[in-house]
Nucleic acid binder design. Structure first.
Lengths: 330, 330
DNA sequence: AAAATGATTGAAACTGGTTTCAATATTTGC
DNA sequence: GCAAATATTGAAACCAGTTTCAATCATTTT
């Protein structure tokens, strides 16, 4: 490794001067500056970030916590964040928790140890009380997931509204027996809670009672969707429509439904959530709730970068709009 | 930040001793060791990785270079690598090049500056001559992409064989007019070159001449697939089957074909590459060439970790098998 | 022309750990 | 019971940068 001292020696100056050139300090004579630059060029010198970081001078890494990168929702989110970061010279560290609490905490330690200068969390496994202490070490921004606090910036969509307009759309199409797939049912606050309320509110407004056996929790993947469809087929009183918590679940549902000879949307209407690429490619095209993923990621990245520059802009909640995309599955 | 000195003071020992405890050195009296551990616990101390790295003692980060994380092929690859790394205590840095040469080089600099201890490249934008010098700073493993060298470890599938069996399958189904979508046509060596040769060889063996207007280059996405289908529709002499370079292209092809009223596979047979989740969910189910993505990632991770431990195991090429998955689109 | 101001520069201290080296304490061998 | 070997410990040097402080030099003010 070539160090700042090698450069200093070659340029015939002290390492202090080299450091000043690296950091664009004023008051360096043009000729020395040029000598230093030439020496750096000649030696192919790159400053050692560990050393700079140690002195508290460097901030170039942001971390994004996701449950699973293979979930397209999160890969698109990461994509957007990474692009914002890169434009400002930041590297993006991807932290996949696999929904493991300990893994999440181990990633939060990146903040404490200055390996990451800020963190964007797109999911939360631990209680906020566990996570909150880490805000002391650097900014944390929530994106997608949200909690019942006002002192942390959040970028979210109106999940309540998303489910509400989706279920309402099904009701308007004449459905009264509407099943519902969700991640979790019994959360205190946050995404799943709001979605559940949207579902219930839409039913309630139409005077439809909730049928608990049509509510299916802990569903996320295509495989989950297939299994749910099998469950539904075995029911005596079958729903005529399903609100799926993600386009992937919807895809699995659709596959299994078609395999069982059901026509979509005539025998069974399906609506998804997210508007991922898969939604368009399914046959029939999947009606779904579009989340502005790229904008969410972009906004989250921008907020985090802003917090890294000015210490404390007032943390705010940014709520982006969801949108019903009607295709052929409803 | 609490430092090693705070711990030393509280435990009533020197920082040397604390360091020894952290690193599990032998020859520390049990009582002092316990005092130190207690002090560390009490202060919530975490060693500063920048400082450890600076002294050349720490290796905890591997970087994965991908063109686009939103491409499921790469997100599954990253997923597999990340899991192997995490189990050995490594963090995974995701580097998205967006097919930008400069961005790729900027990520290779992570090695030079010891921000990453090793790199797995799943794509290559620059010439190897540009990249090769970086191997001086740490191990580089190629996974998926490959080059004409023997001194760098590569994990690859037999791309030639993949295309060959796919095209042969189409021929066996009676097709003689077979279009072909690919990333690049005129590469010197590597993935695309081998795929092209598999295509040509299969045609040649069946005595079918190559029709250049049926070869479509620089195709990657669903949108590309749709556009290709439009091109094909406008042709006077239309192919009866298409070999797509990825399942996503195939998905786009299928969408557009169905929209144009073609029946699949009767009017047009389609075969994909990868066997991503989308392949299964398409209707009709997509016949495709399965790549063992998870195994590739796992192997690449293991090789890299091995190289980080023993300096120089003989670099080898690992070729994993591809497999034809026949569904209903052919 | 002397004093005051500001630009330019480098020596040394500092960041938070690890490693070397030497000193001291303890155990083992005979 | 004494020499040799081994265990335990800390002071100081080191990693590669940044920052503080003071010294020198040039320029402007009075």
């Amino acid at each position: 490794m070539t160090t700042i001292i090698d450069v200093a020696r070659l340029a015939g100056v002290s390492k202090t001067t080299v450091s000043r050139v690296i950091n664009n300090y004023p008051h360096i004579s043009p000729d020395k500056k040029e000598q230093v630059l030439k020496a750096m060029e000649q030696l192919g010198f790159t400053p050692n970030p560990s050393a700079r970081r140690l002195r508290g001078q460097l901030a170039t890494t942001i971390a994004v916590v996701v449950p699973k990168i293979v979930n397209p929702f999160f890969s698109y989110l990461v994509d957007a964040i990474e692009q914002v970061g890169y434009r400002s010279g930041y590297q993006t560290l991807i932290c996949q928790t696999n929904e493991d609490k300990e893994k999440e905490l181990s990633y939060l330690n990146l903040l404490k140890t200055k390996q990451a200068d800020g963190i964007i969390m797109t999911s939360i496994e631990n209680d906020w009380a566990q996570i909150e202490p880490y805000t002391e070490f650097g900014p944390i921004v929530l994106c997608n997931e949200y909690i019942n606090k006002t002192d942390v910036p959040m970028i979210r969509v109106d999940q309540y509204q998303g489910t509400y307009i989706g279920v309402k759309h099904l009701i308007e199409r004449g459905h009264r027996k509407i099943a519902y797939c969700t991640g979790g049912l019994f959360t205190e606050f946050g995404k799943d809670k709001d979605r559940n309320q949207g579902y219930q509110k839409a039913l309630e407004e139409a005077g439809i009672p909730v049928n608990p056996s049509w509510i299916l929790v802990d569903k996320h993947t295509i495989e989950d969707g297939k299994r749910v469809m099998q469950l539904l087929m075995e029911m005596k009183d079958r729903p005529t429509a399903v609100f799926a918590g993600s386009d992937e679940i919807a895809g699995g549902l659709m596959m299994a439904a078609k395999k069982a000879g059901l026509r979509i949307p005539d025998d069974l209407a399906i609506i998804g959530f997210d508007d991922q690429p898969i939604a368009e490619v399914l046959d029939p095209g999947l009606t779904t709730i579009r989340q502005p993923i790229a904008q969410m990621g972009k906004k989250a990245g921008e907020i985090l970068l802003a917090m890294l520059n000015e210490p404390c802009p007032s943390p705010a909640v940014y709520e982006l709009p969801v949108e019903l995309v009607v295709r052929e599955s409803t």
